[in-house]
Write a protein that binds this DNA or RNA. Sequence first.
DNA 1: TGCGTACTTGCACCATAATGCAAATATACT
DNA 2: AGTATATTTGCATTATGGTGCAAGTACGCA
Lengths: 122, 122
Amino acid sequence: MTPVQASACCRPIDDLLDPELFKALSDPTRSRLLGCLVKCGCACTVSDVGECCAVDLSVVSRHLSLLERAGVVQSSKTGRTVHYVVDYAHLCRTMRAIADAIEQCCPAEQLPGCARGCCGAR
Amino acid sequence: MTPVQASACCRPIDDLLDPELFKALSDPTRSRLLGCLVKCGCACTVSDVGECCAVDLSVVSRHLSLLERAGVVQSSKTGRTVHYVVDYAHLCRTMRAIADAIEQCCPAEQLPGCARGCCGAR
DNA sequence: TGCGTACTTGCACCATAATGCAAATATACT
DNA sequence: AGTATATTTGCATTATGGTGCAAGTACGCA
């Protein structure tokens, strides 16, 4: 593998393994809120989503806005209510991109002795 | 959508949105260590992986064992050295499974008025 | 048996983040 | 204008987690 090839196949990894996205999904309460939102399959208000968790509404509000900053959900305000929707397309695209990048960077068979040294890692 | 269909398409979501996995990927140092391991493309010792980060070796050790508990990497001990490898297959499978589950649970078009009520979630 | 290497664990410290309550903001309704 | 509802923000508290150092363990080697 030439340096050019290596750089082409491995560069995306660092961008895709974005800690911010995973951090957004790493909290149990947020995970539950997101699951609720996913299963609902439509735009839900903050209060609606809050019903699936035994936490204060202010906590729900903060979690949802954090999920939005991470690009997992989108919000739209109509009047005094805020509706949240899962950004399905973005989420699916990202998950698949990670899988693709890892596969492209790392073939199924392990090379012996770290002979590859892709991207100058190591 | 019948309850049976809903339950079939949505049940996997809760399991797949496992906070433990995402927590493992949510720390910048761990992300970097994993990226290093991915790009290396072969089994690396703890010391080797540690060279890509300016943290104490004990920190590297802890991070790698955490990644292993999360199912992201696998370790094998030979003598006094421990080799870590990325569990590419598992990682890719999980990422794609999440994308698949979300897509199956939630069609591209939003249903109006929360008429769906999939899985009893609001 | 003694020493060096590879890694792990205990511990203390510090930073970050989750939470609930109360207050503030924004908007609708009368 | 005044009141009720939906959400957000400030603040204090608490919990969680990352880090380094030092000590401990496990193993290889002479």
